[in-house]
Write a protein that binds this DNA or RNA. Structure first.
Lengths: 198, 198
DNA sequence: CCTGGAACTAGACGTTGACTAGTTTCTAGA
DNA sequence: TCTAGAAACTAGTCAACGTCTAGTTCCAGG
C-alpha cells in the first residue's frame, strides 16, 4: 500500500528546506524540531537520525547559508566584470540583499558560539564566502585598482564593512535605501583610499 | 524574623546582573528565567513582576549593553582627545574589546527581530551609541580632518565598519590580533580617503 | 538468504516559558 | 492613624520542547 512508506527517503533535505522557511518567516525562536517533524509527517524523534541535536540543524542551516551567500555574490559580481568599481558595488549590494531577505539566517551564520567557535563544516563554508570576496579583490588588483598593498587585509576590511552594513540593516538600525547609500559611500572610500597611496 | 523578606527589594537589578553573567559565561541558550529566579532565591514566577516575558529581559540586557558600550567608547575616546586619528583608533579598539568581552551580548544587541524591529527602549539606547560615534566624528570635523562632506553618512560608515570587525571577531572568523590590524587599516583608509577629496 | 546497520516509531523524562489565583507587603491618601 | 489598592511575590498548572532509550521496519552488502 505504501501509503506512508517507513522511510521518508528525503527527510534531511525536507527538514532543511522547511527550517529555512520557518527561520525566514518566524525567526529562530520558532524553529522547533518537533514542529518540523510534524510538518514532514514523521515522528518527533525522526530528525535525530539526521541531526544529532537542534544545534546540528542550526549549523547545517548556517553552512548552507554561507554557500548560498557566496554563490549569490559571485553571480552578482560576474555580471559586471568589466569595471571593478561596479563589481564591488554589485557584490556588496548582493550581500545586503541577502541580509534583507534572510535576516535571521545571517544572524545564525555570524552568531557567537560560547567557548568553541563554529563547527568545521560551518567554518569551511564561511571560508568559501571569504574566498569569493578575495577573488573579487584579486580581479581588482589585476585590473590595477590597487597598489602593492596587502590584498588579504583589504579583503578582510571589505568583508567587515559589508557585514557591518548588513548588520545595521537586519537590526533595523538603518533602512534599505540608507544601506544602498552606505554601500556607495563605502565602495567610493574603499577605492579612493586604496589608490590614493600611489 | 525577616529571614527571607517577602520583598526581595532588589530583584530586578540582581536578575539583570546575573543574566549578564550567564550570557557572558554560558551564552544565550543557557539563559533561563527559572534558573535566575532560583539563584536569586525567589519563586519561579517572581521575575514576571519585572519582565513581562523572556524577551523583555533580553531587551533590557540589550539596552544596558548599548549604554555600557557607548560609555566605554566615549571614555576611551576622551583619553586621546588631542589627535583625531588616535581618538578614532581608541574608540574602535574599545568597541572591539567590548565585543571580545561580551560576544553574546553584542549578538543580542544586533539581533534581527522578525517582523517589528527593536523595542523603543532598545532603539533609543542604540541611538545613544550612534550619537557617541557622531560626537567623535564632529570633533574630527572641527579639527579639520574632513572636508565638507556629509558627516552623518561618514558616522554611519564608521559604525558599520567597526560593527563588522566586531562581528568577525565574535564569530571567530578572525583573531583578536587580526582585529587590531584591521582597525588600523580601517582608520587609515577612513582618514586618507575622507581628506583626499580636497 | 541473512545479517547488520540505517531510518524511523513510540514512550518517557526533566526543563522551560507562560498563565492564573491567591498571598504578603508597601504606600499614598483620607 | 487607618485603610484601600497597587506592587511584589508564591504556588500550582499547562503545553511544548529537546533529549534519551528501547524497539521496529526497511534496505543493502556479503
Amino acid at each position: 500500500m505504501s501509503h506512508r512508506p517507513f522511510h521518508h527517503g528525503n527527510l534531511r533535505a525536507v527538514l532543511l528546506e522547511r527550517a529555512e522557511a520557518v527561520l525566514r518567516e518566524r525567526g529562530i525562536d520558532a524553529l522547533s524540531l518537533r514542529e518540523l517533524a510534524r510538518e514532514a509527517g514523521v515522528s518527533h524523534g525522526a530528525p535525530r537520525s539526521h541531526f544529532a541535536d537542534r544545534n546540528a540543524l542550526l549549523d547545517a542551516l548556517a553552512e548552507r547559508g554561507f554557500v548560498r551567500l557566496a554563490d549569490e555574490i559571485r553571480e552578482a559580481a560576474s555580471r559586471a566584470r568589466e569595471d571593478h568599481a561596479r563589481t564591488l558595488r554589485a557584490a556588496a549590494s548582493a550581500y545586503v540583499r541577502f541580509a534583507v531577505r534572510e535576516p535571521a539566517l545571517l544572524d545564525l551564520m555570524f552568531t557567537a558560539k560560547v567557548e568553541d567557535g563554529p563547527s568545521e563544516a560551518v567554518r569551511s563554508a564561511s571560508e568559501r564566502l571569504f574566498a569569493t570576496m578575495a577573488e573579487i579583490m584579486n580581479a581588482g588588483v589585476e585590473a590595477g585598482a590597487y597598489d602593492a598593498c596587502d590584498v588579504g587585509r583589504l579583503t578582510l576590511l571589505l568583508s567587515a564593512t559589508v557585514q557591518g552594513i548588513a548588520a545595521l540593516v537586519t537590526s533595523r538600525r538603518i533602512t534599505t535605501p540608507q544601506s544602498e547609500a552606505l554601500i556607495d559611500d563605502a565602495i567610493t572610500l574603499f577605492l579612493s583610499g586604496a589608490s590614493a597611496e600611489r
